[in-house]
Computed example of a mutant assay.
Amino acid sequence: MELAEAIWEKVNGDKPFRYISDTPFVYDVQKRIPAVEKAKKLLGFEAKSDLNDMLDEVIPWIQKQVKAGNI
């Protein structure tokens, strides 16, 4: 939900955050807690960009692709 809100703020500015979600399936994972330690241990990968910087790069690209009909 935090990611959705961060994207909303970048796309919609000061408009209040809104979301709609489907009813979860009975066997859906109730809580996900991602961890990056496995990627670092197994792959030697460690992200250098923070989320806000990454969203500033990705969101305009996605918007351009949507306008071009690619997405």
Rank of each mutant, 00 (worst) to 15 (best):
A6Q: 10
A6M: 11
I7R: 00
W8A: 03
E9A: 15
K10N: 08
V11H: 06
N12E: 10
G13H: 02
P16M: 05
F17P: 03
F17C: 07
R18W: 00
Y19F: 15
I20W: 05
I20M: 03
S21G: 12
D22A: 14
D22V: 07
T23H: 07
T23E: 14
T23A: 14
P24K: 09
F25N: 09
V26Q: 07
V26R: 13
V26Y: 03
Y27T: 14
Y27I: 07
R32C: 00
R32P: 03
R32D: 01
R32Q: 02
I33V: 15
I33Y: 07
P34W: 07
A35R: 15
A35K: 15
E37P: 03
K38W: 13
K38E: 14
A39L: 15
K41V: 05
L43E: 08
G44Y: 08
F45L: 12
K48Q: 14
S49I: 07
D50T: 09
N52K: 11
D53C: 03
D53N: 08
M54N: 01
L55T: 08
V58S: 01
V58H: 01
W61S: 09
I62K: 05
I62Q: 02
Q63R: 12
V66L: 08
A68P: 03
A68R: 11
G69I: 09
G69H: 05
N70I: 13
